[in-house]
Design a protein around this nucleic acid. Structure first.
Lengths: 209, 209
DNA sequence: TTCAAAATCATCCTTTCGGGTGAGGTGCAC
DNA sequence: GTGCACCTCACCCGAAAGGATGATTTTGAA
């Protein structure tokens, strides 16, 4: 498996598509598919698992590139850039609701595409990484009537990872009995009945519920 | 106070800056400042509090636009778009670390700027709000070797809320035994040992791990 | 120093969970 | 009609979780 980024091109004009593909390959990307319509795009997304996509909005007959974009936004977690000649307000309004990483208006060249893709992929990697942030003890405590101790907070982090009491004990070098004691205190402070509810409560606190 | 979006322009060529300002005003943006160097940009950021910024990379003497971008990334939470003629790898590498919303290469026109700004601002608003969403069945299934059934998905949603088997049964009007059967299937499909690990796996899938 | 909170561990007991197995009913595709 | 997937439920059993109580040690603040 190559370590190049795998790009899907959705463009109904074969000549333009080939042109774009040439740019991408020249810049060190892998082109994992060229789809001329939404149907093909959908299939290639499922089968080829690209890291990012370039979407023409006008695809002739049938669903347009924005529909493909909605599909990507809902089902796949990859960044994409629109390549289009539509600069009108209506199209832009529809397009931006799909949260594209970029929107390139014709005429564009290889450099335009390359820079937009690079940034789209880079931002996407950092954005998804930032989401996996672990809860912060202070942030939790400010929202609780009774503060968690450091040890209880550590237990909580292990809880979130789906570990059992035994595994938590091994990981923190304490007895299973101690783990249970800490968890009892944790449940009281979080006002929860069990571990799964505790996990849920924490995710609520993290997202300002 | 106007409800227009307030934009800061950082550009050392007065003619180009005026040109851009004209575009923006025409498209309904407010131009809250034109900075010809990093120093002025910094001051205007602090004083005028723009919603977004357009940054030329080359600012003549002194710190360039990427330095301004780093400042924005660290101190302000606003999206920004680079406007530049630098397409070289080195500049792009430096620029993308600042996580710009866009990167427009010269020559660009009013439409290029307008669409990039619209998308930058729109994405920024949605990114800082709707971080945590309910998992989507299709999104999960595309990432699993064996797809979840609808019922199993419903069970999963209840699991995430921290409900016990009994509570889930009552909520879905099925027997606890049925709940257990579904959960067994769920654990196999998610390749997890228990409910808490299943919750963790789902959050991984949602965050593209 | 004294006191209190935190951290550690244990024992006993009940409840819940999870695995295994079997099985009846429905609806849909071939 | 025959499969097949899905949903439903039951019983059994061992493992894990959770509740209650008590106790020791460490640590930091008063």
């Amino acid at each position: 498996m190559s370590d190049k980024y795998r790009i899907l091109i959705v463009e109904d004009e074969p000549l333009i598509a080939e042109d774009i593909a040439g740019y991408l390959i020249e810049y060190g990307f892998d082109v994992v598919g060229i789809a001329g319509n939404a149907e093909t795009a959908r299939r290639m997304l499922a089968e080829n698992r690209p890291h990012a996509a370039l979407l023409d909005i006008n695809l002739g007959e049938g669903p347009d590139g924005i529909v493909v974009a909605e599909d990507i936004r809902d089902k796949y977690r990859i960044p994409f850039v629109f390549l289009t000649s539509f600069a009108d307000k209506g199209t832009l309004e529809r397009a931006k609701k799909t949260m594209p990483a970029g929107y390139l208006l014709k005429p564009f060249n290889g450099n335009d595409i390359m820079t937009s893709l690079e940034i789209a992929i880079f931002n996407h990697m950092n954005a998804t990484g930032a989401l996996q942030k672990e809860p912060n003890l202070e942030a939790i405590n400010t929202q609780l009537p009774v503060e968690l101790s450091i040890r209880e907070y550590e237990l909580l982090l292990s809880l979130r990872k789906g570990l059992t009491n035994k595994e938590i004990g091994e990981r923190l070098f304490i007895s299973v009995n101690t783990v249970k004691t800490h968890l009892q205190h944790l449940f009281v402070k979080l006002n929860t009945k069990n571990r799964t509810e505790a996990i849920f409560r924490i995710s609520e606190l993290m997202n300002g519920a």
